[in-house]
Design a protein around this nucleic acid. Sequence first.
DNA 1: TCTGGGGTCCTAGGACCC
DNA 2: TCTGGGGTCCTAGGACCC
Length: 419
Amino acid sequence: MIGLCDADAFYVSCERLFDPSLHGKPVVCLSNNDGAIIARSNEAKALGIKMGQPLFQVSDLVKQHAVIVKSSNYALYGDISRRVMSLIAGEVPDSAVYSIDEIFVDLDGMKCDLTEWARKLRTKIKHETGIPVGIGISRTKTLAKVANRLAKKSSKANGVLVLDDQKWIDLALARTEVSDVWGIGRRYSQKLAGMGISRAIDLRDMPDAQARSLMAVGGLRTVRELRGVRCIPLDDNPDQRETVCVSRSMGKEISGRDELNEVLNSFAGRACSKLRRLGLFSSRAQIFILSNRFKSNRPQFSRSCEIGFHPATNDTRIMCRLIGQNLNRIWAPGLEIKKAGILLVDICRPEDAPVDLFSIKPDTNNTLMAAIDKLSDRFGRNAVTIGRVPKPSGQDWYMTSSHRSPSYTTRWSDIPIVR
DNA sequence: TCTGGGGTCCTAGGACCC
DNA sequence: TCTGGGGTCCTAGGACCC
């Protein structure tokens, strides 16, 4: 059997850990730029606030019901996540972290009542980390997802649901909308609805060939998993990631060449720092700029270009220099740029990096970059930056984040004080 | 006024190879 | 008139996830 532990409204739960006054109240957490709602407490859900909804669309509701609004605080959430995950990993034979708030666990060979075991685990997690989780258990990852969803929805299940018996699986699938199945998004739901398939149980009973032609091999895998056939391995993560991306929407559109250069240089700094922390190098990057897709009365554009590095690098200075040299390939006067970014592709470990004719190898002993990383760890991300990249604070392009909670667990100055 | 960011995988089609 | 077959690699676009 496979289990899925998934935290309830994880970001909200993290905020509540350090501010108990938030319990029982409607709370939402926002995306970058304070744009959209990406986590909701049950009370906020009950008000009809939708996942992904832009904040401004619910501003009346927020005022009317005194909804508490929080900017996202990834330093805090990441740290809490690590605590929860390592606790769970210690309780099972095998596990695989799937996202910041989800972990799949392998329960094969466990000789006990799984419902009882899961209840105990759930209590333990709540007790030791303060985070409420739901646990769903079944034959495959996709079915465990179904179980997990019902575990949270049903008051009878009270956070734990084991789907083993076929009769119960059938009932669960009959109660699950096809759009709530893992792997079935908006587009596939629409297609399926057009064919009269609205419930997970109908999807399960669809012929293989039809599933395959409609939704490719991934869709077929989903259908088979619903039948109880394991098609997705417990740990489905590639051993090495393939891209690193840093991109942002800006508080307001920018147009100037220098301004764009600043933005991209600062993103390149972040991207290189990510690479160095992973011990990886990149030999190719794409820089891109986008218009504001919501302003349909303005000209729309999406421009990008590729930049190669020889040898592969993770040195911020090299990337910044090449960005400057290539900027005119995407920038043009008069463009109103809302979003920009850098995508590093062709990521590799230094020993696997392509070597050119003259055997020039990636610089794996970059003392300057190492020093910058150390200073950033100690004094904050922008303690030291490459010349001509001004500090983000005070930059009008920098994202807005007006409801940010302190970094209680990752910054000494933000440690909560008990009086 | 205000609409997230960072990933993965699959497929079709074109360029190119012998 | 008649114009191969079998590959690989790359890219763009579309789907999905949290």
